[in-house]
Design a binder for these strands. Structure first.
Length: 302
DNA sequence: AGAAAATCCTGCCGGC
DNA sequence: TGCCGGCAGGATTTTC
């Protein structure tokens, strides 16, 4: 599933292609991929056609592309990959199965490209959104060469910074954990507390921190909270270096290639295998409508 | 108000 | 060979 490392790989791959490019054509092949777009602001294709994009910005799993010129100038093209979304850069004429939205790009240096938004399960989507000030008045997210400034898409404004953001508030995160009387994994998956973590990296970070997924968040000592955040950052950084996790050929980068972090997983999807740390058997339990993978021997409930 | 459950969505895969 | 039930889990909405 696309989580922070996968979305960052996509953002970095798109950055050189979209920065300075003009959208010359928009084809919405499945309207459901626009489910977050407010039609009152105007037709998606009409707003976007003729627009020049200035960069690619990410916070957590949210992506957006500021519009510098054209009908949507001052607003952004926002995208979320959901469960199975992909953004593929292709030679014009090269279609992909399950393409829901296609953007034709004209870049002053790189020429013409297709950007195919592919999404099997339709949990992801694109929209035109407006910018609002960030609650903390600090830069909105990570944009590579593009400096986003203190403006964030309205629909992403409620999301916390991600743990690789230099402005991430460690203390607010620890305070949030101390306040929550719920399982620690629920807290890690709460994008308003910490963004960018999904099921894979939650399980991996909890394994690394030797914490059971359903241990009460508020009862975890401060030293272990610190360690958990450290493990979260370590897992996300390592996955990013490996190009993300490709599981069941679900996630690919903008060229359609897989990431390699699946080979480095210690807990997620490893049920039945030996825990790499203690040799116990990794088990999978159903929790929050999803699988939780952990080692019952070195991740005790209490 | 905070926590938990319900909801959306469909291609793929294993089993028969 | 072909059908079909089950599976995957992001974020939002609804319920408790």
């Amino acid at each position: 599933m696309p989580e922070l490392p996968e979305v960052e790989v996509v953002r970095a791959g798109l950055e050189p292609a979209v920065s300075g490019a003009i959208i010359t054509g928009v084809e919405v092949l499945d309207q459901r991929a626009l489910k977050r777009h407010d039609p009152i602001r105007g037709d998606f294709a009409a707003l976007l056609t003729g627009s020049r994009l200035s960069g690619a910005v990410r916070r957590g799993k949210y992506l957006w592309f500021p519009v510098a010129e054209g009908p949507a100038a001052g607003d952004v093209l926002a995208a979320h990959l959901g469960m199975s979304g992909q953004m593929l850069l292709r030679e014009p004429g090269r279609d992909d199965k399950l393409t829901r939205i296609r953007l034709s790009l004209e870049h002053p240096e790189h020429g013409e490209l297709w950007l195919n938004f592919v999404d099997q399960r339709l949990f992801g989507g694109m929209m035109i959104d407006s910018l609002v000030p960030t609650p903390d008045a600090l830069p909105a997210g990570f944009g590579g060469a593009f400096e986003p400034g203190a403006l964030i898409p309205r629909t992403a404004a409620h999301i916390a910074r991600d743990p690789l953001d230099p402005h991430f508030d460690d203390r607010a995160f620890f305070a949030g954990l101390a306040r929550r009387r719920t399982g620690i994994k629920r807290a890690l998956l709460d994008q308003t507390l910490i963004s960018g973590i999904g099921n894979i990296y939650a399980d991996e970070a909890l394994w690394a921190a030797r914490l059971h997924y359903d241990r009460e968040s508020a009862g975890i000592p401060q030293t272990r909270r610190r360690d958990l955040l450290e493990q979260v950052r370590g897992v996300l950084r390592r996955a990013l270096v490996e190009g993300g996790t490709s599981f069941d050929a679900q996630y690919v980068n903008v060229n359609g290639n897989s990431g390699y972090f699946a080979h480095s997983l210690n807990a997620y999807g490893q049920q039945g295998k030996a825990c790499p740390r203690c040799g116990g058997e990794i088990v999978r339990e159903s929790f929050m409508n999803r699988g939780s993978h952990f080692c019952p021997r070195c991740q005790r409930a209490r």
